[in-house]
Structures are given as C-alpha cells and as structure tokens.
Design a protein around this nucleic acid. Structure first.
Lengths: 234, 234
DNA sequence: CTGGGCAATTGGTGCTACCTTTCCGTGGAT
DNA sequence: ATCCACGGAAAGGTAGCACCAATTGCCCAG
C-alpha cells in the first residue's frame, strides 16, 4: 500500500515535496545553490520550516548545506536512491522511464529469491492467499478488468515479499507497488495480460503453497523476465 | 568507500546519531514516547536542533511526531531499512547478526545480476581492473594478508556494482563494503580465504572482462552462496 | 453507575529576533 | 604575482512567543 499524505498536517512537508521533486526532475541541477532565505521567500514560510525541509533533503543526500556558501544540490550518485520518497519523486518526473527500468532490474534480482524464501517461510494463511490471488488474477485478466487486476497483482507481489521473512525484501513492497501502478498509468501494460503471465502467477503460487522453493524461484524469474520484455519497447 | 560523517560539523548530528542508535538497538522500543523537551534537556541543545534531528528520524520512518502526544518510536516494519544510516546503526547494535544475514540475502539477489550487467556494460578500464583485482586477491589470500584482502575485496565488489550501469545497484556499494568489513570484525571470515573463493573471483573477473554475462552471473552467485555457507555457523 | 460533553493541560507547530561561526572574495601590501 | 587581512554573506544555533490540536479527566445529566 502506498500511503501518500497520511499526516496531511505539516507546513514543511509541501516545501520538502516541491524541492524534492524539482531536484529529482533535474530542474535544480547538481551544483545549483539554494539559500534558506530564498526558500523562505519562495514558499512564504519561516526559517524553521525551511531548515527542517533542508535537513531532510540533506539526509537523503540530495543537497549539502555549507556555511557561507548555501545549500548545494549534490550529484545523482550521492542520492539515497532507495529512499521511497526519492523513488517516488523520480517516478513522477522526466526520469520515470529510467527509474522504472532500474527498478525492474531490482525486481528481477530480488523477487525470485523472495519467492523462494516464501516457499520456505510463509505461513499457511499466506500460502493459501497466494493461491487464491493467482486464481483471482486469472479471472480478472481474462475478463479484461485491468485496474482491478493490477491491485491484486500488487497484493500478490507484496504478499510474497512479506512472506520471505527478510525485512529488506519486505520493505520493497511499497516501492514495487508504485512500479506496478506507475507502469499501467504509463500504458506499459498490454490491454489484456498475456496468458503466460497468468500461468506463471499460478506456477509461483502453487510452488510457494507446496513449499517447492527452487520452483517458486524459477517461475518468478520467468514471470519478471516476461514483464521486462513486455515493457522494453516503452 | 564508507564515509562516516566527514562533515563532522553540526550540533544536531550527534543527537541524531545517538537517538538513531538507541532506536535501532531497541533500547527505545516501538511505542516508546519521547518529547522535544526531553531531547533538549538530555543533550543540552536548543529546540531547533532537537526538532531537526527528530525530522530526520521521522523521514527515516523511525519515529512519528504527533501533537499533544510526542515523538513515538515506530515499529520496525515501518523503518526505511535501506537507508545507509539505519543499516549502519543496526550493524552497530545487537541486531548485527540479523542485519548481516538479511544483507547477505540481498547480496545474493543483487550481485549476480550486477556482475552479469557489468559484463555487458563495463568500460575497458573497469574490465581490466577487475582482472587485476582478482589476481591481487589471490596473492593476498595465499599470503594470509587478511585485512588487505578485505579492502581489495571491497573494491572488487564495489567496482562490479558500479559497472553494472544500474544506479540502484551502485548505491549498494557502500552498504556492502560495510558488510564485508563488519564480517571480518565479527570474525565470520576464515583465517585464510578458501581457494575456491579465489577461483570464483577469478572466474567472475574473467567472465566480465570477456563480456560473458551469463557466466559472470553464475560465478558470482556461486561465490556468494559460498560466502553465506561460510558465515552460517556465526 | 454510566455516558456524553466541556474545559484544562500538554506538547508539537510555526514565527520572529538575535547572536555566532565559518569561509568566500576582494583588495591592499609586499 | 603572491599572500594576507578583513568585510560580509549565509548557515548554525539559541530564546521565547503565540497557536493549535489532541488527550485527559472532570462534571453533570440520565
């Protein structure tokens, strides 16, 4: 589940969001210098708020603050590219395609192992839920219910990441949810999921349910390679 | 290269560091409530400094700030476990072993694909450097120069991650360096690297140099599985 | 005794004013 | 041309204020 704005309140959050987006989008290129004064004036906020937003950006590696010189935008290589906010900002900007590609590579790396681990570590409830979801996916896919299909797909992949028992894998669930949602928004999904995809979802679920780790891993890998080739033209 | 706070300057940094460590270590368990006043008094800093540290912790998902309630420590599942600072804090605390395990799983997921990508995308300089490093590793390993071996190993793995052309993989270089260093500090390394490890380093380097992607991937996977089994007893 | 509403308390939110510290530029002296 | 000293710009840090929201608990009605 992506959770945008659950806090809602907070005056420094809009500032953080806007600056983060602009930096991630490259509108404020590396080397560009901001000042607290400038931020205050631009957003009509106090020094306190400007400083807090700046500190958070600094902790993400997006900027560096030095006395006398100002707030400098840092090169991309220094960013915390695993920070969910940074990923979100890049997915919202012109680098969306590139970010989707690197994230898909990450998915191909992580999700097969997560599925394998899930086959070993999942609870009975998780196993049956996986099978159930795979069946639902087939039904929705054949019916052409694209958005509902996507939501279940998000749940399916999130479930396996959670069930892997590795909290670092589990932490990727939200990010991958954003990838799946962003992919359909970008029109990188076929209008009707290919039958192979449904077969592979079934295969993964069955292998997880049956505790067949290696099988779950290879099926998930095949599924994701399928996903990558499908979005290559995009 | 690990770079612990080369900025040094900054009064809010020690506060952030201490609180982060305590939360990561579980000394401040989920649900525990802090107040800005308490932080001010404890560290002898002003409200501004306490607030900035709190905001950064909040952006890492370690705490949540609510009016009238205070600053609540959030459950582990909400943490940004990919944030380098969070990883560092957990590696420094009692959860070190668990963190090393999840990170090793992540390595097994990511590094083989990164090596495969490096075989496709590396520059000529990177390819020759990889071969050179593998040879150096063999020499150092046979000589039993453990710390120097480790430093070259750090460079080797970082090089391939950088060369993969995927910035998310590249961003893991620092973290993996911390894992390698932490592993030797924890005594989870054999006193003399096993010959197989050296052979596999060679195989990876040769495959990358020769552009044989699949071969680089499988060799790297074998190398990391070796690593995992070696640290399982720990 | 229970429940609902109202008021007091608590603690973060945001603002302003002011001082300190660090360095970047600049300009003058050698 | 080089070096050094100095002024000023901008972040770093402190203090105290008004404000607001949520929680706590009290009080009174049923």
């Amino acid at each position: 589940m992506i959770e945008r704005r659950q806090t809602g309140t907070g005056l420094h959050d809009p500032v953080l969001e806007k600056l983060g987006m602009e930096i991630a989008a490259g509108e404020l290129p590396p080397g560009h210098v901001l000042t607290l004064d400038g931020i205050q004036e631009r957003f009509g906020v106090s020094r306190t708020v400007a400083r807090e937003a700046m500190r958070v950006l600094e902790s993400m590696g997006l900027v560096q603050s030095r006395r006398r010189v100002g707030i400098t935008v840092r090169p991309t290589a220094d960013w915390n590219v695993f920070d969910p906010k940074v990923i979100w900002w890049r997915l919202s900007g012109p680098a969306r395609g590139a970010q989707l590609r690197t994230l898909t590579e990450l998915r191909i790396a992580v999700e097969p192992l997560a599925a394998g681990a899930a086959a070993r570590a999942a609870t009975p409830a998780q196993r049956s839920r996986a099978v159930e979801l795979a069946a639902t996916l087939r039904r929705l896919g054949e019916a052409g219910e694209l958005t509902e299909f996507m939501e279940r797909d998000v749940e399916f992949h999130g479930l396996l990441l959670q069930a892997s028992g590795n909290e670092m894998f589990a932490a990727l669930a939200d990010v991958i949810a954003a990838v799946l949602r962003g992919r359909t928004q970008l029109g990188l999904m076929p209008h009707k999921p290919v039958p192979e995809a449904m077969d592979l979802h079934d295969a993964v679920a069955a292998a997880v349910a049956g505790g067949r780790s290696a099988e779950a891993e290879t099926a998930m890998r095949a599924l994701l390679v399928e996903v990558r080739t499908a979005m290559l033209p995009g």
